[in-house]
Simulated assay, not measured.
Amino acid sequence: MTRADAVTAVRNPLAFIAARWTPDPRTVRRAALAALVMSVVIVVTGGAVRLTGSGLGCPTWPKCTEDSLHNTAEMGIHGYIEFGNRMLTYVLCAAVGWAIVAARSQKPYRRDLVRLGWAQFWVVMSNAVLGGIVVLVGLNPYTVAAHFLLSTVLIAVATLMWQRTREGDGAPRPLVGKSVQQLVWILVAATVLLIAVGTVVTGAGPHAGDSSEVERMPLDWENVSKLHAVLAWIVVTLTFALWFVLKAVDAPQGPLARTRELFLVLLAQGALGYIQYFTELPEILVGAHMFGSCLVWIATLRVLLSLRERPETEPPGLPAQQPDATSPSMAEPR
């Protein structure tokens, strides 16, 4: 390596790597998928911290204790669980970093992928700081809810990046009409509300995250749970209606398949929700329900992203062909 190369590597390591490596498109897709998988893993392990009463296993932040960066044997299993979850944040950062490097090195260069990778990085950093605040304020339920909601933002960005790695870089072409798109946006909004109310159920419920007395949201837990169930049925109904509308307008198989997948995930998640409610919230089922909420969110976003296609960039001078507005895939439901 020459001195000039060494200077470039220090000043702009991403450009240095990109100039010497061109990843296969499958490598970029796998890197984006790894970041998405880790964004779900960190949610599930965070739930395990709370459900095992290990939320204050490390009682301070950024150190684990006032005198130690890591947990000590005297802290017991709760210290290991909490500190282990903190260490997984570094694994998540590594996965996101790998996605950024792969996207930056791809040829031709795609600015949107790199920006989505960096967006994940900054969300991770923000949520790490918020996680520290959660500890410092003694697991205040409102900060815990915000911590989870910011994780759903991370999952959304990671899902979008993964989808974009599987598409071309041309202008998006809609596969369905505006009325169908509007119905899907209503479905997305209802899902966001469903997840947000789910955090309220958690904040008012019995699993406080620590064995000691921890503040809970001053709401009737059972009433909030019933509201959550009503919202879940609304999301299921919207998904069922969307599937019929897509069949009626003879939509392409992509949106139909993604909608069917969402419907199946919702049924499984709903069944799990009712089982945990009537069995007095066993920790293992609550953890599985948190994992299911991540799958519901990803499946909902995939329905939204399936409503358009992105071909490869058109050669210069050749305008992108617009789909016929009277074609079956663009028709409005009658």
Rank of each mutant, 00 (worst) to 15 (best):
T52D: 08
H147V: 07
A156C: 11
V37W: 04
V265N: 01
L272Q: 06
T279P: 08
L238E: 01
S105W: 04
V224D: 03
P141W: 03
G317L: 13
T52C: 08
V91W: 06
W98K: 01
F291P: 07
G47D: 08
L33H: 08
A325E: 12
A251L: 04
A18C: 06
L92D: 00
D250Y: 06
L305I: 04
G168N: 13
I77H: 12
S105H: 02
V236K: 07
V235Q: 00
D67K: 13
A171L: 13
T237H: 10
F263H: 03
S212I: 15
Q181W: 07
A171H: 12
G46C: 08
M1G: 12
W243S: 10
R26V: 15
V200Y: 03
E66L: 07
T52W: 09
S39F: 01
I81V: 15
L139T: 06
A156N: 03
E283M: 13
V153S: 09
P252C: 05
I17P: 09
L51Q: 02
A189D: 07
I17W: 00
H70Y: 08
V303A: 06
W233C: 08
P252D: 05
D324F: 02
V114C: 01
R50Q: 09
T237E: 13
G84H: 10
L318K: 14
G254Y: 01
D250L: 05
F244M: 10
L304K: 09
P172M: 11
D210L: 04
T300L: 05
A208K: 04
W221S: 02
V41L: 12
G79P: 09
R302L: 14
E280H: 13
F148T: 00
V197D: 04
S327T: 11
R164M: 10
W297N: 01
A32W: 05
V123L: 09
P174G: 08
K226I: 15
K247G: 07
R164H: 14
G53V: 13
E332N: 09
L183P: 00
E283C: 00
L56P: 01
Q269N: 09
T52H: 10
Q120N: 07
